[in-house]
């Protein structure tokens, strides 16, 4: 495999690697950061870089946007980029905003219940609650740490 690693090969694949770096940045934010809003932002970054990967697959060297002349007389010499990835990604963007808004609504609800949007603080509260339940004690309302 490594004998194919010519300059041409590297230049032709550099954009894919670039998008993978972006994707991994988003994934890192999702995994490593405890703040829920930040997790959603990381998810968005991940998502957008996947879109970029798809769109770049559809790009043709020297091509142009896939919009025909108004009289529909298409010049056969004209190169157009592939419109299919564009269509799929248009759908994906809208689905993405739907999931984002649902996630944000969940965050608001969590904040209302736990008074925090930090993951480890929620985990602490949950541990405390299950500790009290195991010991058969009544959870007092002043247990709001």
């Amino acid at each position: 495999m490594f004998e194919e690693m010519t300059v041409d090969f590297i230049l032709g694949h550099l954009n894919y690697w670039f998008f993978i770096i972006l994707m991994m940045t988003g994934l890192y934010v999702v995994i490593a950061k405890g703040n829920l809003v930040k997790k959603i932002v990381g998810l968005n970054i991940f998502q957008t870089s996947v879109f970029m990967l798809y769109i770049s697959i559809g790009k043709v060297e020297g091509g142009t946007a896939p919009i025909f002349p108004m009289d529909m007389k298409i010049d056969p010499e004209m190169l157009y980029s592939n419109p299919l990835p564009h269509v799929l990604i248009l759908t994906a963007i809208v689905v993405g905003i739907a999931t984002t808004s649902l996630g944000l609504a969940l965050i608001i609800r969590i904040r209302e219940e736990y008074h925090t949007i930090e993951e480890h603080e929620i985990a602490e509260q949950e541990t405390k609650v299950s500790f009290y339940e195991l010991n058969g004690n009544q959870l007092t309302s002043g247990d709001n740490s």
Partner: peptide, 8 residues
């Protein structure tokens, strides 16, 4: 836009 996907 530079990747020709103006709608996107």
């Amino acid at each position: 836009i530079t990747l020709d996907a103006v709608d996107v």
